[in-house]
């Protein structure tokens, strides 16, 4: 059945330094952090729920991102985490919603990665303020993303799937100063639909 899947960026050819990491399991988790339920959830995850904006925590291949004071995104390699979290909630106040297909992941890497992001991200990405292991929700260009830095030169961006194509093309455009490549036609763009910019000419 896996071959019936199609990722939001399957139609694009990426330049070096940009790639899609599709089909990861993601769960949007809501729970009151001071509750016993939260403790159960942490036990099930094998790691703490980060308590501050910008923080992440890890357990094996799972990463937990702070989204809000009672909200997290759990990233995992496989889907069993969803039922584990629902079970840990045990019907108590909170929620664990499968959002795996709600977003995709775009990885931007290279010595230019921060420069590219600074072309459109209002958050301070200077190493003094933001580094590997940090993740925040913000915007890149006009697109809302969860932005996660994984090492000195690598960032992962989580846009909603509907924005993924635009964001990827925005990033490629912003990268062209560092990684020259031929601007590509979007494979689904209908030919002949380009606006006639010469029409101002009398």
């Amino acid at each position: 059945m896996a071959d019936l899947r199609r990722s939001p960026l399957a139609h694009l050819t990426f330049p070096q330094g940009l790639t899609e990491l599709p089909f990861r399991t993601m769960v949007n988790l809501r729970v009151e952090p001071s509750s016993e339920t939260a403790a159960r959830v942490e036990k099930a995850l094998g790691t703490t729920l980060p308590r501050q904006c910008g923080q992440t925590s890890e357990a094996g291949s799972r990463t937990v991102f702070w989204l809000g004071p009672d909200e997290w995104l759990v990233l995992a390699d496989s889907a069993e985490v969803i039922s584990e979290l629902v079970e840990a909630l045990g019907g108590e106040p909170g929620s664990a919603v499968d959002v795996s297909a709600n977003r995709t992941i775009v990885e931007l890497s290279g010595p230019f990665a921060r420069d590219v992001l600074e072309k459109g991200c209002p958050v301070d990405l200077h190493p003094r303020e933001f580094g590997p292991g940090n993740a925040v929700q913000t915007t890149v260009g006009p697109v809302p993303v969860l932005l996660w830095q994984t090492d000195a030169e690598t960032y992962r961006l989580f846009p909603r799937s509907s924005f993924a194509d635009y964001l990827a093309r925005w990033l490629m455009d912003a990268m062209s100063e560092y990684v020259p490549f031929a601007p590509q036609q979007q494979s689904w763009r209908v030919s002949g639909s380009e606006p006639d910019l010469g029409s101002l000419d009398e």
């Binding site: 072309k119 459109g120 697109v143 924005f163 194509d165 964001l167 925005w170 455009d173 979007q186």
Partner: peptide, 13 residues
């Protein structure tokens, strides 16, 4: 800035 032409505004699909 970059938000011109094809990138003028996000196109959600």
């Amino acid at each position: 800035g970059r938000e011109r032409g094809d990138l003028f505004d996000p196109e959600r699909t």
